[in-house]
Design a binder for these strands. Sequence first.
DNA 1: TCTGGGGTCCTAGGACCC
DNA 2: TCTGGGGTCCTAGGACCC
Length: 420
Amino acid sequence: MTSLFAIVDCNNFYASCERVFNPALNGRPVVVLSNNDGCIIALSNEAKALGIKMGTPYFQARPQLEKDGVAVFSSNYELYGDMSRRVVETLQQFTPNLEVYSIDESFLDLGDFYKIDLQSYAKTIKETVFQWTGIPVAVGVATTKTLAKVANRLSKKSTKADGVLVLTDERHIEAALKRTDVGSVWGIGRRYATKLAGLGIHTAWDLRNVTDGFAKKHLTVVGLRTVKELRGESCMELEHMPPAKQNICTSRSFGETLTELTDLEEALATHTVRCAMKLRKQKSCAGVITVFLMTNRFTEQHYYYSRTIKLDSPTSSELDLLRHATRALKQLYRPGLQYKKAGVIVSDIVPANQVQLSLLSSQNTERDTKLMHVLDDLREKYGNKFVKYGVQGTGKKWQLKEEHISACYTTDLSGLLKVG
DNA sequence: TCTGGGGTCCTAGGACCC
DNA sequence: TCTGGGGTCCTAGGACCC
């Protein structure tokens, strides 16, 4: 029984989301910026054609963006998250065996679909998603996830394929792998690509033909799996239910550099609350909390300052976590430093129902748990800003720079009032 | 002046134990 | 002077993904 996977990948996802609600942008170059309007993280095809590169700092690209009339957006994750959900719901019409791999990619298990015409089936998926959501996607089909990724990538490059490529024929696979740089293979990053080039491996086809021993020696067991997948031997299963996260991190750069303890406290308190909410959402508790502060990593050698605290017993209460985060911050803080970013990481994560309570704290814990339920419900109904702590402050100073944010078309009803 | 955020997995080496 | 060997746990660092 051979496996069969499709990967559905949204084209230039964030840029496409902006377009869905602003059709005047069709045919125009569009870019989307990272948090704080820092870097370019998404480009429409027209923007790519202008030679603009992913990851370029906004301030560097700005002259060209203005000259070429590129539409620029701050990232709007509320909008992208909602559009992502719509795409997934559409895909679920095709199969329940689906893995949401990232905000803009899903794997579909087509294990039993060999008998059907895969080419026209994949085309139907693509057309349906566009019809229902307005998001253009590309579909790659193959016997392993890694080969499906290759197919997906090539489907976007060929006008003949037009966003749909089924890669099951051995001759086609060979041709496809010969046309794929080794660095474009899923699992081979920049470092490995450079290393492999030094060893005479330049294409995906070269990589497919190395020995197992070579792969393991130079790329570890992870790379060996990639090589096997290129040969058509499926080593990566579909993951229906993503496992609970083992670390959860919430961090942001500040809109401007901060020096005062109280400003840092406000920012960190907000990150801590969000971290606790993520923790509770996956029904976990954390045994360790780390607070970090960063100064300018581009100009200073020592820019990362962190403090890790082991908790008496794992918790998901933001009251507990706030107390420890504040204590850690006070130990970390040095007057006179120009801080650019702060964050909270919780780790040593265990399922909430497995937490052993220490006898002394159990009464508090029970009360906290009830309180957290109430807070989560209120935030669900009225939004995150509805319930805030004094220590979170007004946030004016540290909040993100978002000079080009679009409206939350899909979730924000107040937008309708403004228009009407 | 400006340069994102949030994750995973593997390996090597040191600490520690018997 | 000499100072085994094997197992486990933890951490830091390095690689990758979107």
